[in-house]
Amino acid sequence: MRNIHTGMFMRKVLLTCAVLLPSYALFAQDDLMKIMEQQNTKTKKEEVTATFKSIRLINGHDIETCKQGELLFTVQHRFGQINQGSYEFFGLDQATMRLGFDYGVFNWLTVGVGRSTFEKMYDGFLKAKLLKQRKGGTPVTITGVSAMQINTLRFSDPDRKNYFSSRLTYSHQLLIASKVSNTFSLQLMPSYVHRNLVPTASEKNDVFALGGGGRIRLSRSVNFTAEYYYVFPGQISSTYKNSLAVGFDIETGGHVFQVHFTNSRSMVEKGFIAETTGDWLDGGIHFGFNLNRVFTVYTPKE
């Protein structure tokens, strides 16, 4: 490994010195620094990178996408509610999980698929970066994400006429984020969830919500994160709560390990936005983690 990394440095130095930069030999008495400064007058405003450490803030997406040719393998766990006490080992006896594969088709486009044990859910999403924040330029990055979920639990009443479409839910989100400083990023998430079938007539098929979240850098490898979704009133049953999650992102080379506490059990949008059951004040909190591992499938040519 040591050698591989060293090799990387060598190659890129060769690249930049030999190919990218103009180099000059002077035959007269000129001040070198002044000439260099003249060369560097017009450069494009730099893109802001690493607004967040993973492509998910906690439960929901953030503005980051996979780089072209990158495959992100995600293992997510949510345990049971902490208030169930020592018999259930504070929820740890009741794990639900989601396995996901996300792939960077282009730097700006990521596709992903996943499977959750909770509600035997398949999900897929398309995520596109629409606008990029630049230093001294565009103030925000905007990413759109559209997802679809298929619940594959057996129908609760097999005797009545059931439709496949009843299993489907959709979500669309616009993610707007700004890396305010090196240590602080902020994100807003206007969100829309559509459920083809809802349990009672009083619940709306369409649910509108506004999410907010951010990260604070605590050290080079540790970040504090928080995420909240506010569901506008009158759309969902009063037994459901707004989703709130707080956690830490811990980076270890090719892994990002996210540990958190959340009142949502589901790890797909329709679940945590519209069907969160836990109550923070009541101890209805789930411990959970996302384990993200990046694989480089191929390196795009410049």
Binding site: T6, F9, M10, V13, L14, C17, A18, P22, S23, Y24, A25, L26, F27, D30, I35
Partner: peptide, 11 residues
């Protein structure tokens, strides 16, 4: 280890 090569042209 850093390797570099400068091909220079007249300024």
């Amino acid at each position: 280890k850093v390797t570099c090569k400068f091909d220079l042209s007249p300024y």
